[in-house]
Design a protein around this nucleic acid. Structure first.
Lengths: 213, 213
DNA sequence: CACCGCTCGGTTGCATGCAATCCTTGCCAT
DNA sequence: ATGGCAAGGATTGCATGCAACCGAGCGGTG
């Protein structure tokens, strides 16, 4: 049985990232304690961690709110990701074992299915898949400091807009980027994967904050 | 009166960064609570934050230890810094007001004095000055995500080796880099400052982990 | 004599109670 | 009517007590 604080943190993370709890929502300790059936102490610790990850903001004596990201920080976040994530992918490629490549394949394929225009399209589900996809590369880079620096930042981008206002063609591009990235990884071509990741991020940035760097 | 948890975090941060508490030291909650005259609750919160900053590592049910950095993460840390900090400096330059430039001047001059070879040389004191110097630039970049990503990482480099095993000429170079960086900033030459920061980091990396990227 | 299991001391993790702080609402003065 | 202010309610921050877990030392067994 894992610690209650960790469990609470995971639950909250999930709910925030999935959009179940909208941005800016006030997170009262007592409420959360009641909802998750634990005391306020582990809740406080969970909130503390999520604040470190950048998912919630804590104001002293004024409680915690789900972080709200405006356009400005978002630009900076993409600036950061562009500097780090392509590099991370290149580092990750040589470290990917067969089973990880398979998992990446599965994730990319699942996103492609889930994102196909039509009645089954489930944009919400993509968020989590995408998070795992990027997270897998980042972890495989094998650099804890790099992973730490990117964690919060990728979260943030995911939260703001859950793919919902991707233009259809941009979304398709994005999903195919994933597929191509796995192909590059499977070929052991780190620089190829890096290039695709860079394009992937430019594409995302363009749809999220409009063109014009 | 600021919160006890914050105060405890600052105290510990200070002691760890100054080297008063060596790497790997076990941090018992009860001990710290006694030493800082607060309860264990704010101590736990402080440790949690420091863990997020990467200064301490906590293992579930096994307490917290001062983080210990080996050579490998150090390489990665410099890789990160090289990607982020020169950029941060360039962004910071246009945002620096007169009083901040003066403060940077003071810091650079103080480090120069304190690091001058001879009997007054006080390498320990440089650590804190250096931290403030870099921190000022990072904050002035005006990008919270960037600052967050760099915070922990600059801490780490500072902790490991407190300038003590800088070769004398490398140390002098490093201190003069600071001066030149302020000059560049005062001239409003962001790219100049960026270039110097890059050299500054290469110099530091060479002395810390040996040449050869 | 070496190795495994067990008990016990110590530490972390969690719950709860209390004090301090902040926000709100209603009242009063201008 | 509007602005300032004070009291009430609610919430956070901290302290303390208890339970769960980990590690060390000892006794038993092969």
């Amino acid at each position: 049985m894992l610690p209650a604080a960790e469990q609470a943190a995971q639950s909250l993370r999930e709910e925030i990232l999935s959009g179940a709890i909208p941005s800016g929502t006030r997170l009262g300790e007592a409420d959360l304690a009641g909802r998750l059936s634990v005391s306020r102490t582990p809740i406080r610790e969970a909130l503390s961690r999520l604040a470190a990850e950048g998912l919630v903001e804590i104001q002293p004596n004024r409680g915690a709110r789900v972080a709200t990201w405006s356009a400005e920080p978002l630009r900076e976040i993409f600036e950061l990701r562009l500097r780090l994530e392509p590099y991370a992918v290149r580092q990750a490629v040589p470290n990917l074992g067969p089973e990880q490549l398979d998992e990446l394949d599965d994730l990319a394929a699942a996103m492609l299915r889930t994102g196909k225009p039509g009645r089954h399209q489930n944009l919400g589900a993509i968020v989590e898949l995408n998070r795992r996809f990027h997270g897998l590369f980042i972890d495989a880079a094998g650099s804890p400091p790099l992973a730490g620096a990117l964690r919060g930042v990728t979260h943030a981008a995911v939260v703001t807009r859950n793919f919902h206002d991707y233009a259809p063609d941009a979304l398709q591009r994005s999903l195919h980027h994933h597929v191509e990235m796995v192909a590059a990884a499977r070929a052991g071509a780190g620089e190829w994967a890096e290039a695709i990741m860079r394009a992937h991020l430019y594409n995302a940035r363009a749809t999220m904050i409009g063109g014009r760097a």
